[in-house]
């Protein structure tokens, strides 16, 4: 069984340990032997932008010492052999050009999504 993970919701869990829970669970399921692909859609295309930092949060003098690093997390998905796609139009609308993205992300148009869907048995939308 192969499942495509479409990640749309973004920057929702900055202070949660799992950083982005959809990206995190994709890593965790891959570790459990899952066959997965990822599409970054909507605001989540920004997860592919290199050079992000959520460092520096501190409430009442108590700092967050392990802030999310979503660009690194996406890069690690690619390193694990997971196909990661980003929607071209969603990037363009947000002023993101291909060279902004971490290596290995494949750019696809919205119209090309049906072809990607066809490669997977299930499509999970986060």
């Amino acid at each position: 069984m192969k499942a495509l993970q479409i990640i749309t919701s973004a920057y929702r869990c900055t202070i949660e340990e799992q950083d982005d829970p959809a990206v995190w669970i994709t890593h965790a399921m891959k570790g459990a032997g899952a066959e997965l692909g990822v599409v970054l859609r909507g605001n989540a295309v920004n997860y592919g932008v290199e050079g992000q930092s959520a460092a520096g949060l501190s409430f009442g003098g108590l700092p967050q010492t392990q802030p999310p690093r979503l660009d690194r997390d996406i890069s690690k998905l690619v390193d694990k052999g997971i196909e990661v796609y980003a929607i071209q139009e969603d990037c363009a609308e947000r002023g993101i050009v291909p060279t902004d993205l971490v290596g290995g992300i494949q750019s696809i148009t919205r119209a090309e999504l049906p072809k990607v869907f066809a490669k997977y048995d299930q499509v999970w939308h986060w």
Binding site: M1, A3, I25, A28, M29, G31, A32, G33, A34, Q122
Partner: peptide, 11 residues
């Protein structure tokens, strides 16, 4: 459980 349970259930 853990995310492995989700994957195993789904499979």
């Amino acid at each position: 459980g853990s995310p492995a349970d989700l994957w195993n259930s789904a499979s």
